[in-house]
């Protein structure tokens, strides 16, 4: 059943309470509130080092209203595996074990751990919220940083393509893989719920805006995410192992056709991290975007 705006308003439980430390306009905290809120009484969270380990709040004022285990940067999928196995032993496998972490852990330091859990078909869902940067440590390049982005470690612009983590997990036989955007929360929550209804290793990569690191206006956080979909930068799809078919999602469907897309510069121009981007870099970014679409089409 599709999730409607109304369902989103009536949450069974508020998963993100007052006192969180997320920046104004943080797409990650927003996505957290909606997704985790939709399963709050059943969710067990595992959080690797990331902005989420900070924005959950501190001490007795922790704002995550679900059991939360903070782990070392690269450890979360293995910790989640252990929880899932223990819950199975205790006959509590109705609980949902969810890793909520950034692109740094999912694309870089924790990728071996994540593929390991996927390979073992651990019954967990990994949500990788991507701000394309190491946010927690002040905005350094990650394996999911876009070409042309000025980060703390690529001050002249990042030159390497994105790692395409969803496809890495498809290649490793995940049960379900999807992408989502903080601009389309209904779509995200629907995918999130669907993933949780399936047995095995599930993975969702969600695009979230990060105003401080993207040097963007926090009031435009959602608008930027929406443009990410409309420019084709962020393909929205879901893939299911049973069918081995990737299906474009409703809000992003028409952008599969390049003719319907807005120019990528509409998206880059709202973000200070792309200030000074050259035409050559812009073309390279377009090419990398097309590379992802071409990859995706092989599964369509």
């Amino acid at each position: 059943m599709p999730v409607t705006q109304k369902d989103l308003m009536i949450k069974p439980k508020d998963a993100l309470l007052k006192g969180h430390f997320a920046c104004a306009g943080c797409g990650s905290a927003l996505a957290f509130r909606h997704a985790i809120g939709s399963v709050a009484d059943k969710a067990v969270l595992v959080v690797p080092a990331s902005c989420a380990s900070v924005y959950q709040g501190s001490g007795k004022g922790v704002a995550f209203n679900v059991p939360t285990i903070n782990t070392a940067f690269a450890a979360s999928d293995a910790v989640a595996s252990g929880i899932s196995r223990a819950l199975k032993r205790k006959g509590k496998d109705d609980l949902k074990v969810i890793v909520w972490g950034g692109d740094g852990s999912a694309a870089d330091i924790g990728i071996a751990t994540e593929i390991g859990a996927c390979d073992r078909q651990e019954n967990i869902l990994h949500v990788m919220y991507s701000n394309n940067v190491y946010g927690n440590t002040g905005g350094q390049r990650s394996g999911d940083t876009m070409i042309g982005a000025r980060t703390a470690t690529t001050p002249k612009g990042n030159t390497t393509p994105r790692k395409m983590v969803p496809f890495i997990l498809i290649a490793n036989n995940a049960r379900y893989v999807a992408t989502a955007s903080a601009a389309f929360l209904e779509d995200f929550v629907e995918k999130f719920q669907k993933a949780l209804s399936l047995e095995g290793f599930k993975f969702i990569q969600i695009d979230i805006s990060c105003p401080p690191n993207w040097r963007a206006d926090s009031a435009q956080s959602i608008e930027i995410s929406r443009l990410g979909v409309q420019t084709g930068i962020w393909p929205l799809f879901e893939w299911d192992r049973e069918t081995n078919i990737a299906v474009l999602s409703r809000p992003g469907k028409k952008y599969g056709d390049k003719a319907n897309r807005k120019p990528i510069s509409d998206w880059t121009s709202l973000q200070g991290r792309f200030r000074g981007i050259t035409d050559k870099e812009l073309i390279a970014l377009e090419e990398d975007t097309e590379r992802q679409w071409n990859f995706l089409r092989k599964f369509m």
């Binding site: 293995a78 595996s81 252990g82 929880i83 196995r85 223990a86 819950l87």
Partner: peptide, 15 residues
Amino acid sequence: HSALAACMGAAWSGV
């Protein structure tokens, strides 16, 4: 790294 991490997850679950 994952061996101990998995044990940690299980230990946090009380087994």
